[in-house]
Design a protein around this nucleic acid. Structure first.
Lengths: 349, 349
DNA sequence: ATTATGATGGACATAAAATGTCCCGCATGA
DNA sequence: TCATGCGGGACATTTTATGTCCATCATAAT
């Protein structure tokens, strides 16, 4: 049995095991690196409140890993030994948390969740990604929320993993956008309905093509029943969306070749909830939609992005730069790509 | 890096979490063994209150390790898998807690603390034993308590590990008994004074030989200053004492050969705070003392025994049977000996 | 020598979580 | 059909965690 397996087992019984372990490890390490340090400065350098830190240092003192006296705190021999023994473990154990934190901070997100593996390569990772997405979504959902979901294989995966542990009757799932030229399973409509069925929630459909000319848009919006559901969609409190490669998505949606070329020229890289972004997160291509618009996203309380696979790293980074997401759920490979982009950015500046 | 190293680290860094982990593990195991069981009967069989158990089962249900429905609880597939995977690790993770609990229950103690190793073999273990003793003592001490301490090398170890982290000015350390024929370092007087100095507390000496004839006793007790300190000693709220082998101690104290023979004939096995016990915890040899008497012990609020080493296992068990201790601090080897004695006892009955 | 700084630890109000208790409706099996 | 034992809801109460402020002490610079 190896270390990872043990941790995985322990985490089932104690989900925040790693969180606590990491917290205490970082305190210990910071104290060691500082030789001698006071509580207040330690608290700020670890970004903890003073009182919480104090509870931990009191604990570490009781364990005799820290020595605390009137002059401040320093690490004990036992503490030093513990740190040395933990060092090789640290990376293995917390590599992902470290990554999460880095990405979270850089893009100013509320939360980043990374599952290990590469969705491009492994079915297991895709499933894990789905599960992680479910967990995030479940946590975000209240008692009577409107949740807008986009299409795509990743979102379909989320839908399939969702379980009805706590029946969320009052919630309403809606598609974020209209119908696309994709396969039925990956349609936003399909996914919204699956999610609703699996959680015992309600759902509404939007039976309108996503891509509309101005005339068609205007006339459709005259229809009371279309108009009503569109308004519900636009008032969603939660949005969960995938992220795709711009060119792949454009073709899948049968966008005009000339438009595709124009977007390409403008540096379109990523696609999400129907919009196309360049590497800086700027919107490259706008179009009329009966679904969720950019301005709606900005008002949405919780925007969850979910996408994985090394090939999507760049696209994810682009959408994150757009800056209106709150939570990102991704996998290790994509996260590493994103981290590389961040590093490059930071060294250029 | 192997699993055992990780466990060792966790035991230092998160002992509190491991306690929780063990609790959940035991619940899961009990449910598995019971096939299907209700909350109330589970609570009694685990000796937990219903509400506490409920909090845990709710958690385990959320983790999908337990299936709960109107008919009762049963273990899920994932739960079963978890138990199987954890089984080989259980001993490494919780072996000592298990031992502690077993000994605690058998002798009806309040708390048992076991440090790993064998004090007979290892200096490190002796030191650990001292540290653990300190921790227990520190927890027991209030703001103005009288603490009676006996002599012996183990208690000397405790004294040397005690630290003045929380200055306990109002407390008073006194020797439990008078002077013995031992070396100065192991005298109760010496230890009491060391402890007091190291914690910033007060101390009083008892300059009287422990072993007294009736005449000498009577006349000494006429002395007001002797009488006064003796009364303080006998009113101690806390007693911390070592445990020794009867014969070894008798010789060290230069007890008359004829008396030694008599004690031997009566099955004297263990010695503690000046009294000799046989294997059943019965007092074999009583003598007049200016220090703490048996009847004082019975009134003492907190009686802490501390002793380790495989060779002392039997003696410790004997004194525990005497039944007036509240806390036992020992080491792994002694604890294993004690457990063996318990098992033999239980199978005989 | 003295003053200023920054340290810990105590104290305490308040927020949050854990716990004890009681009771309800429901399935199951006698 | 009824009684038993089940889970789970509700709520008062206790315990614990947290934020905040301050007293006191050690240290270093003046």
């Amino acid at each position: 049995m190896n270390v990872h397996a043990l941790i995985a087992i322990q985490q089932q019984l104690l989900p925040d095991l790693l969180v606590v372990m990491r917290k205490r490890y970082l305190i210990l390490r910071q104290v060691m690196l500082s030789d001698m340090i006071g509580r207040r400065s330690l608290a700020t350098s670890l970004e903890m409140t003073e009182r919480v830190l104090r509870a931990e240092t009191d604990f570490l003192k009781a364990q005799e890993l820290l020595i605390i006296d009137a002059a401040g705190m320093r690490i004990s021999e036992a503490g030093k030994r513990l740190l040395e023994e933990m060092e090789p473990l640290y990376k293995a154990m917390f590599g992902l948390s470290e990554l999460e934190e880095k990405i979270r901070k850089y893009f100013g997100l509320q939360q980043v969740v990374i599952v290990s593996g590469d969705s491009d390569e492994s079915l297991v990772t895709r499933r894990e990604l789905g599960r992680a997405g479910c967990a995030v979504l479940a946590k975000a959902m209240g008692n009577s929320d409107v949740v807008a979901v986009t299409g795509g294989s990743t979102l379909a995966q989320v839908a399939n993993q969702l379980s009805s542990q706590t029946p969320l009757k009052g919630n309403l799932f809606v598609p974020a956008r209209g119908g696309l030229g994709e396969s039925l399973d990956y349609q936003a409509n399909t996914i919204a309905s699956t999610m609703a069925k699996r959680t015992g929630a309600q759902y509404r459909m939007l039976h309108v093509p996503d891509h509309l000319g101005e005339e068609a848009y205007t006339s459709l919006m005259q229809e009371p029943n279309v108009r009503e559901i569109v308004e519900v969609i636009r008032s969603a409190r939660i949005v969960i969306h995938g992220i795709g490669d711009a060119m792949v998505m454009a073709r899948r949606r049968r966008v005009d070749d000339t438009v595709v070329e124009a977007m390409k020229a403008e540096g379109a890289l990523a696609e999400s909830f129907g919009y196309y972004f360049d590497r800086n997160g700027a919107v490259v291509h706008k179009m009329l939609t009966a679904g969720l618009r950019l301005e709606d996203i900005m008002d949405t309380e919780v925007v969850i992005a979910i996408a994985g696979g090394r090939s999507k790293g760049e696209a994810i980074a682009a959408v994150m730069r757009f800056g209106h997401d709150d939570v990102l759920v991704t996998d290790e490979s994509a996260a590493l790509e994103i981290a590389a982009i961040i590093d490059k950015e930071l060294s250029n500046v």
